[in-house]
Design a protein around this nucleic acid. Structure first.
Length: 423
RNA sequence: GUGGCCGUAGCUCAAUGGUAGAGCUCCAGGUUGUGGUCCUGGCUGUUGCGGGUUCGAGUCCCGUCGGUCACCCCA
């Protein structure tokens, strides 16, 4: 038996790496005053059909349950979030700053950076329309990357405001209804053959030169919220992480303002994160019961881990976290089996004191026990045998050994820990 | 959904159409209570699965499942 296509087993090393990622996400999100939320993994399929653009339904992981309900494994958090906000929004002070770390499912063929089950960090800020909110979210996205030791040489946030294009179209008397199709052209600009693009632009009475001229403008002249946004990020000292790029529009129709994506600098991987402002979505999903401006973004675990494993300095951090997750602090070597009861008592006392302690469950030669301690990555060994109640505490890295009473051991270990922290 | 490449031991890979192997990992030893090296031994296979061609198929052909990469799409 194997895993289903696009699903993963998580062996201890994988879990340790993932834990490292989740811990960083959680810690940085909290720094920004975000609180954690979550919703059900399974939702009625209708929840995902409401949102404009039914083409997404084709990638739903859906089925009929035993109660004849048509259900779907969640492909994203936003509809759930919108429902939760709409149901109880008056109970929360605005703006809401919520994040979640949850698994998602999409029924699509897997390829590099895309699986059928994956985990995302979602951060959403609801109830604040000013560009300051956009800047705060972009700053958070940047710090999430920096939290892993990534720098401006490793990644870049590409930012745009869809309203810049709306103003561009309005100035040329192009109807707002044609905007979605026009934005599709912009979205494909980097992948499409230039000739095809020129031809498509002709339908709007636009030339490639006119487009390129707009693309080359500095952010403040592009329009929308980009001027204030640039100033805000400049004041935060984060300007070097950001590139204003009108070609970023995001594929989905529901984005209404600022949009952004994060890429690795060499562009070897897929987008690491993406998001934007969706001021109308909560009203749409709540049947106009609640109307709140909102913006959010998501970071996936798959591409992020690919990048973290690919860069030497972040790979080293992951490896260290993996080692730390799996190693006991102490390995108790039972040199004389007749003292196993005393050893069990000591082990229990050490564990009660919060130590990570391991030992051999069955009789084994002393050399073998030391080898196991070494392999597991223990920092100290405690040798226990005929000299009980005296025991030996050995620092494995230096091979230094001292003899002391087992009663003194917990206190002795605290001192040794304090010394290690001081250095 | 469409297409390219690939499926041999737990892992990395060998094997001209002619007896399925190596390295690593793992396990056990190397004599009384001290370590990653070293030495010895051991386990692990329906060659993804099912058909076909052949005296004979890991090898050739067809199908299927899985992996991988790209396209489409990307919440």
């Amino acid at each position: 038996m194997q895993t289903l296509p696009g699903f993963r087993d998580f062996y201890p090393a994988d879990c340790a790496a993932r834990r490292c990622v989740f811990d960083t996400w959680r810690e940085v999100a909290r720094r920004y005053g975000f609180v954690e939320m979550d919703g059900p993994t399974l939702e009625p399929v209708e929840l995902y059909k409401k949102k404009s653009g039914g083409e997404l339904v084709g990638q739903l992981f859906d089925f009929v349950d035993k109660g004849e309900r048509h259900v779907a494994l969640r492909p994203e958090m936003t509809p759930t979030l919108a429902r939760m906000v709409a149901a109880k929004e008056r109970e929360f002070k605005k703006p809401l700053k919520w994040f979640s770390i949850a698994n998602y499912f999409r029924y699509e063929k897997q390829q590099k950076g895309r699986l059928r089950e994956f985990t995302q960090l979602n951060c959403d800020l609801i109830g604040e329309a000013s560009p300051a909110a956009d800047a705060e979210m972009i700053a958070l996205a940047i710090d999430l990357m920096r939290g892993f030791g990534l720098g401006a040489e490793d990644f870049v946030v590409r930012v745009n405001d869809r309203n810049a294009w709306m103003q561009f179209l309005a100035a040329r008397n192009i109807a707002a209804e044609r905007a979605p199709d026009f934005l599709q052209i912009i979205d494909k600009l980097e992948r499409e053959e230039p000739g095809v693009t020129t031809k498509k632009l002709a339908d709007y009475n636009l030339t490639r030169v006119e487009l390129d001229d707009f693309l080359a403008r500095p952010p403040a002249e592009l329009g929308g919220a980009l001027g204030p946004l640039a100033a805000d990020l400049e004041a935060r000292g984060l300007r070097e992480f950001v590139e204003f790029d009108p070609k970023i529009v995001r594929g989905l129709a529901y984005y209404t303002g600022v949009v952004f994506e994060i890429f690795d600098r060499p562009r070897k991987f897929r987008a690491l994160a993406g998001g934007g402002r969706y001021d109308n979505l909560i009203a749409t999903l709540s049947d106009n019961a609640v109307d709140l401006p909102a913006l959010g973004f998501a970071v996936g675990d798959v591409v992020l881990l690919e990048l973290l494993r690919a860069l030497p300095h972040t790979a080293a951090k992951l490896a260290a976290a993996t080692r730390a997750a799996g190693s006991p602090e102490l390995y108790v070597v039972i040199a004389d089996e007749t003292f196993r009861p005393q050893a069990l008592g000591l082990i229990r006392a050490l564990r009660d004191a919060g130590r990570r302690v391991d030992f051999s469950l069955t009789a084994a030669k002393v050399g073998k026990q030391f080898q196991t301690a070494e392999t597991l990555g223990a920092t100290h060994a405690v040798v226990l045998g005929a000299e009980w109640p005296q025991v030996k505490l050995k620092t494995l890295a230096t091979r230094a050994e001292e003899t002391l009473s087992h009663i003194e051991l917990p206190a002795r270990l605290s001192r040794s820990n304090a010394a290690a922290r001081a250095t």
